[in-house]
Design a protein around this nucleic acid. Structure first.
Lengths: 239, 239
DNA sequence: CGACATATTGATCGACTTCAAGTGTAGTGG
DNA sequence: CCACTACACTTGAAGTCGATCAATATGTCG
């Protein structure tokens, strides 16, 4: 396995030397994907789980009439399909949003971890539970906020999640999302994403050119988004 | 602990006699709540997790301007805050939607299970992962379906989840949700919930009087909802 | 350069919200 | 037992946010 996961877990609890060794030493094949390539497909029964090392990915589902909804954006350090370890059957697809590299960890290895390392097991469990917390927040944002709030919230959340794994520079970070993709994340049409983005820009909250986002006024953006990072559980404590 | 959880887990994998004994024998205090009473509050650090034995509950978050979004409806057999075992800090509230009874299982007991019963641990982990799968589906429904589809989907999902734990009679079941509450689940205004419900009724898809729902035409309701139960992972297999 | 996706703008439409008012029903307390 | 309150449900009317349709940039890459 590797680095960004240790950063991510280490942000929430102390990893023993032994546990780090188990994580680092886990046999994992490295796989590279091109942008737009599917990593996992609905109906798959993965025998390994994929830890995103570089690049971005997204979970999504397709509905009738060609509609698509992205349910989660993944950044380096995220296990994109750790849930398949207990779920077995994938109920959604996962696509690379940019060129990306993953470490594929055999479920056999994860199973051995659950047999031999209870604390590390709880941390992996925690990992899926934080995914759940992010999902809940997404429901709240899509259910009750308007387009401005949704877009602002997306930017706030990704900024914080990228900061944890060292993928930000000041308030600037890479975010390889097209406007149609943003629409699929927020449940909005492309046209409306475009107009909302222009609003945030002309309000001086951020710039977003090509794949680079720069937050110009964090405080105001946070207020527009009603963003409170508690749900990301950035607290270091025994688990 | 108790029954409906064993039904729910037993639907997904075989529980050994030993594991059932561990679940049944877990020390758990029983707590009764009145409708509208909060079981868990944002900011709490629970030292036990609550298994819903009777009645209904909901997880929700409050936003500015008094808006509320319910992120999950719980039925008997659900662990309403199992995620607090690894998450520690609650990032949302949980309310009893009806009079309800829970079994509160000490985290100390859960911890012992993770130390001594790896397979049972995976099943509890699975439990939180299924919550996540339900959340993802909720995101899709709220993000991309109109009011009719959302309401139909809610009814379909709850029917299936209640059937698993034996809380249905044919296509009829109890669902103690007021129209304002339905609005908070679906991200809609009360007025629009009312009108949409009338539509579904006059289309002959269902009846919903007071707290009793009766699905009159499952096939058509399913189509309106674009409901596919795969995400509920109702498959019995080794985990 | 040509091809194709992405971004942008304008105009129209409609689903849903908001505001307002009236009805029904259960619970509370004098 | 009835007055009073509170809330859920229902209906009407008006307003708005965002979708849809359509066309025109702009940019990128082979």
């Amino acid at each position: 396995m590797s680095n960004p996961l240790i950063l991510k877990l280490g942000r929430r609890d102390t990893l023993s030397a032994e546990e780090m060794r188990v994580l680092e030493g886990a046999p994992a094949r490295t796989i590279a994907y091109r942008a737009d390539e599917d990593m996992v497909r609905e109906g798959d029964r993965p025998i390994e789980s994929k830890l995103l090392l570089k690049g971005f990915a997204a979970r999504y589902k397709i509905l009738g009439r060609g509609k698509r909804q992205i349910t989660h954006i993944h950044v380096p350090g995220d296990f994109v399909d750790l849930h398949s370890f207990t779920l077995k059957l994938m109920d959604h697809d996962i696509v690379a949003l940019s060129d990306a590299v993953v470490a594929a960890v055999p479920h056999e290895t994860l199973r051995r971890i659950t047999d031999e390392h209870p604390h590390l097991t709880r941390l992996l469990w925690l990992n899926t539970v934080i995914d759940g917390a992010i999902h809940r927040q997404t429901i709240v944002v899509i259910g009750r906020q308007d387009a401005r709030g949704r877009l602002a919230h997306l930017v706030c959340e990704l900024f914080v999640r990228l900061e944890i794994v060292g993928e930000t520079e000041g308030y600037r970070f890479e975010l390889p999302l097209t406007q149609p993709e943003i629409g699929d994340v927020l449940g909005l049409s492309t046209v409306h994403v475009n107009r909302t983005l222009q609003e945030l820009r002309s309000d001086g909250l951020l710039t977003w050119e090509r794949t680079t986002v720069d937050i110009l006024n964090w405080e105001r953006l946070r207020r527009v988004a009603e963003f409170n990072p508690d749900y990301l559980n950035l607290v270091h404590e025994p688990r």
